[in-house]
Design a binder for these strands. Structure first.
Lengths: 211, 211
DNA sequence: CTTTTTACCATACATTTGTATGGTAAATTA
DNA sequence: TAATTTACCATACAAATGTATGGTAAAAAG
């Protein structure tokens, strides 16, 4: 079960790089690049190299463009409205679960929800945060560029397993509390090397299902 | 107290229309128009009319453009990068509440969450959707450009009051069901003029508080 | 080994696009 | 009334942009 809905032909590395460049431009809300700008970015001496890569990308269904229209290249997303977003792993609300080095799955977020490079998504597994209204299957938006304060929901990696808990620090002791009484509070010294505080849960996102 | 940060010269009606057109394009995440496209939109016979309006807009400080660069016109926004999102009203999970004609509030979303023009936010009031894990204060992302299916959570306006309920249609009869048994199902004929289906709740967003 | 694919370069050309210049008519201002 | 502004049209031109065509060399596939 690893889902690929629309058979999409493999991309070469360079094609993927170019596609990524275009996607990045677009998601920055800046205007799509011209052939010349892509050429310059990748150090090509003329536009025709890019021209061919774009043709390949369009033929494979990753791009759409309007003939003779400047800056008309748009990356094609499967659902138009929905953009797949990698989920980096599953985070245990209760007992620690493994965090995956690479993304294990893609979640289709509405395209208007854009997530910065300093953030990533984790899917919550388990019900130990239900008192905080976070449920099994919810996506947690984790921002790594936000200061951690007492009371923040943090995502922490403890010896290669990840948890999402409420953060409290008293002197040198860090407490990772669960909202649910069934799971006990984890207490660690802040100098313990097995602990890495990944980021702060800045929000949750739940894709509503229609059944 | 009516704030004008940068003294900006008055705009004529046409200049404002053109500026609005450009802003609208940009906020739709579509590419900025060319002079030709603006001309066509406003029924001008050539680009030079637009050309002069744009020059005026730039001179007055409402536009920025890069010389000789296609589609480089960008409206100058007072508020920098951060765009507060208006909350259009409060939606009753249980009993209908008033929907506001203009935005009543702004929610500070994390800057990486951007929402398209086809969507807007509503804040949920009440607990009648708690069975569906939607709680008082949650922000519902409503998309007006998504097809409504049986089972969708829809935002509907019934005689100037708005509700969020699960949508079911059987023949000519539309049922708006609450997840909570305490609130009874609303049944209406689909031809009833007092009913407007605003959009589909495509997701919920909850800003997590750190206390 | 031959063929195909990939990744690049070069050039030519038509269209699009931005820009400069000049003109007309109505409305506004001095 | 005369001068200015506003709103439009027309045209010309250079730069930017997309596109078509052909070529080379290395790698991969057959």
């Amino acid at each position: 079960m690893y889902g690929k809905k629309k058979m999409s032909i493999e991309l070469t590395k360079i094609q993927k790089d170019i596609l990524d460049f275009i996607i990045e431009k677009r998601s920055n809300n800046s205007i799509p690049p011209t052939l010349a700008e892509i050429s310059e970015r990748f150090g090509y001496k003329n536009r025709s190299t890019v021209q061919q890569h774009l043709n390949a990308l369009e033929k494979k269904g990753y791009l759409k463009k309007t003939p003779n229209r400047s800056r008309s290249i748009e990356p094609v997303i499967e659902d138009k409205i929905f953009v797949p977003r990698p989920v980096l792993g599953e985070v245990a609300a209760g007992n620690p679960l493994v965090i995956y080095p690479d993304s294990i799955d893609s979640v289709e977020l509405p395209s208007f929800v854009k997530i910065a490079a300093t953030s990533f998504l984790l899917r919550v597994k388990g019900d130990s945060l239900k008192d905080a209204y976070i449920f099994n299957g919810d996506l947690v938006i984790v921002n790594t560029a936000v200061a951690i304060k007492n009371g923040s929901f943090v995502v922490a990696v403890l010896d290669d397993t990840a948890v999402i808990k409420r953060y409290m620090k008293f002197g040198e002791e860090i407490e990772l509390r669960s909202e649910n009484k069934e799971y006990k509070t984890i207490k660690i010294n802040c100098n313990y090397e097995g602990l890495r505080l990944i980021g702060v849960a800045v929000g949750i996102y739940r894709i509503m299902d229609s059944n």
